[in-house]
Design a protein around this nucleic acid. Structure first.
Length: 289
DNA sequence: CCCCAGGGTAGGG
DNA sequence: CCCTACCATGGG
């Protein structure tokens, strides 16, 4: 992994098999990036704009300083982790082998805890385009302006002391109450996200689920995507279908310490690869049984 | 009109 | 423990 300067950009020498930025930033784990050309992703994270252009052997970080790269983006994109041993282990399973051939360049992005927590509260019984839309409106209305029409994800303080009416034009539906409850619990000290980072995962699950609207699935997503607990295993409607079709006898126990990463490969595979599962299963009623 | 989406809750068996 | 109705909203 070599990094060098090219005018205002930083160029990272890294093969696309090691990290595919489009698959990574557009696989339903984070919601603030969009594809701005056929090989460019642009979005906002940690209060900054990030625009990445990828070719076979390099990623261009547009208008990025060496300090921001070192202090923010290496960690955000999980670049210090070697995924090869894990991918070799997961390849012993036929389904994961196919999922890795389809999109093995996915990494688990290290998102801000509060942003991930709120994002996955919004995600419940919702679809990804609508989640992205609501989050963008939330940022535009309550987040701090970064530049032009770009806004940071709102902080706890940005969102506290708001009423349901304040959220009425965000399109959250009934989920506004959940956000209000979450922000209140953080503000009054009932919930401390920094403490959750150091908790045993079972305690973290129980603590997160004290927030209204957070059940098993959202708690697992928050832990996986907001706290980098890669053993967390969110089961949504897609993973339910995958478990039923591929793993009727249960998910392989030898993967349990990294089940969250495996889950993400499968999620992306089954959701976007049209011949991953039979059509009748994809369009079938997922709520039955 | 229907069903579905990175579900959870309350309430009743 | 299980099951079910219901919860807003927009896309297909």
């Amino acid at each position: 992994m070599k990094i060098y300067k090219r005018e205002n950009d930083l160029v990272l020498d890294i093969p696309i098999e090691q990290i595919n930025i489009i698959d990574t930033l557009d696989c339903g784990q984070c919601f603030r990036f969009t594809k701005t050309s056929n090989n460019t992703m642009t979005g906002i994270a940690h209060g900054r704009v990030l625009s990445l252009t990828q070719t076979k052997n390099e990623i261009v970080f547009h208008d990025t300083s060496q300090d921001d790269f070192n202090d923010i983006w290496v960690n955000y994109l999980d670049l210090h982790t070697d995924y090869n041993p894990l991918k070799t282990l997961l390849s012993s399973d036929d389904t994961l082998k196919k999922a890795l051939e389809y999109a093995g360049g996915i990494r688990i992005v290290r998102q801000d805890s509060f942003e991930a927590l709120l994002s996955f509260i919004i995600s419940q019984n919702n679809n990804i385009p609508r989640i992205k839309n609501s989050i963008n409106k939330l940022c535009k209305k309550f987040g701090k302006n970064i530049i032009d029409d770009v806004y940071a994800f709102p902080s706890v303080d940005d969102l506290h002391n708001l009423s349901k009416e304040d959220f009425s034009d965000i399109g959250l539906g009934y989920r506004d109450d959940y956000i209000i409850d979450c922000v209140n619990k953080i503000k009054n000290g009932e919930l401390n996200l920094e403490n959750i980072k150091n908790m045993d995962i079972e305690d973290a699950r129980i603590t997160l689920r004290t927030i209204k609207g957070i059940g098993p699935k959202v708690a697992e997503c928050a832990l996986l995507f907001g706290f980098y607990r890669i053993e967390a295993f969110p089961i949504d409607t897609w993973i339910k279908k995958a478990l039923k079709y591929y793993y009727p006898n249960g998910f392989p126990v030898q993967f349990q310490d990294y089940a969250g990463i495996a889950q993400q490969y499968i999620f992306h595979y089954i959701r976007t690869c049209k011949d991953a599962v039979p059509e009748e299963l994809k369009s079938g009623k997922s709520k039955n049984k």
